[in-house]
Design a binder for these strands. Structure first.
Lengths: 145, 145
DNA sequence: CTATGTGCAAATCTTTTGCAGGCTA
DNA sequence: TAGCCTGCAAAAGATTTGCACATAG
C-alpha cells in the first residue's frame, strides 16, 4: 500500500549518483542509497520521510531517521525534490520537480500524479501588486465512492 | 500582519449564535465568542488556531488553547468551516466552505482568497475507478518580487 | 586537513486526549 | 439529570537540532 522504491543495485546506485551530481550535493554513502531508492529506475515517486526510512531499512541500508529528514530537506534545497503539502500531519516529497497536479487518496493517504494533460487551468489571476506566482498547487482529493 | 477579527459586540454575538444554530452546534459561552470573532461581521476569514486563540484573549474572552482546537474541529465537522492545508507546519480554517482558490503568501504565511472569477479549471480528469472527486484544492503560492 | 554529513537523543511545535468539574437542553 | 463541553496538563506525532564522531574533497 505504499510507494514502491527502486531496488538497490549497481545500476540504480549509478543513477542516484548522477542525480546527486546534478544537484551538486555531496555524495555520501547514505545519500547515494536514498537517491538510488528514489530515482534509480527513473520512475516518479511521492514519498514521506517515514516511508523512505522504512525502505532504506528494508534494503539493508543503515540510515537514521534524522538523516532521512535532513537529506530530504537537502535534496529539496538543491532543487532535486519538491515538497508537496496535502496533509497537515506529514510532508510528501515528489521526485518530479515540475509543477503538476496531484491526486490525494484520502482513505489510503496516498499521493499520486494526476494526468496533467487532463487538467487545464484556463485562467489565472494576476499576481497581486509586488508579488509573483511561485507555483500553483492543484490537489484533487479523492474519496472512495 | 494577521487576519483581523470581528469585534465582540451584541450584534456580532447575535450573528455568531445564528451561525452556530445553522451547524446545530451547542452554543456555549466559548463557542459563541469564537463564532462572533469569526463570522460576526459577515466577512470571510482564514485563521489558524493560534491566531484565533490570540484574538480571543485580546478581546478579553478567556478560552483555552485546547478548546480553540477542539472548537475549530467541531465547526469543521459541522460543515461551518473548511480546513485548508497549505503549510505542513500549521492548519488554516476558512469561514467560506465553498470550494475556491487561494493565495498563499510565502513571506507572511498569510492565506487569502484568490478571485475565483479569475481562476478557471477548464478540464479535470475523471476520478479513477472506484473513487470520486471530493474537492479540488487550488493554491497559488506567491513570493515577493 | 577542513568543512560538511551522520547518528543519537533531546528539544520543539502543533495538535490531541484523559480526566475532573461545569454547563446546556 | 444526562450528556456534552471546558480547562489543564500530559501525551502524541512529525520534524529539527546540539554535539561528538566520521568522512569527502
Amino acid at each position: 500500500m505504499e510507494t514502491q522504491f527502486a531496488p538497490l543495485s549497481p545500476a540504480t546506485t549509478q543513477a542516484g549518483q548522477t542525480w546527486l551530481n546534478r544537484g551538486k550535493v555531496r555524495p555520501t554513502r547514505q545519500r547515494i542509497a536514498l537517491a538510488a531508492l528514489l530515482v534509480g529506475d527513473g520512475e516518479n515517486r511521492h514519498v514521506t520521510a517515514e516511508g523512505l526510512f522504512t525502505a532504506a531499512k528494508d534494503s539493508g541500508e543503515s540510515v537514521s531517521l534524522a538523516t532521512v529528514y535532513n537529506t530530504l530537506r537537502a535534496f529539496c534545497d538543491a532543487g532535486l525534490l519538491n515538497e508537496i503539502t496535502v496533509d497537515a500531519a506529514r510532508s510528501y516529497f515528489d521526485t518530479c520537480v515540475e509543477d503538476h497536479p496531484h491526486f490525494f487518496w484520502e482513505e489510503t493517504q496516498e499521493l499520486t500524479d494526476a494526468p496533467s494533460s487532463e487538467v487545464e487551468i484556463a485562467r489565472l489571476p494576476d499576481a497581486p501588486e509586488g508579488a509573483r506566482i511561485a507555483r500553483v498547487d492543484v490537489v484533487i482529493r479523492l474519496r472512495r465512492g
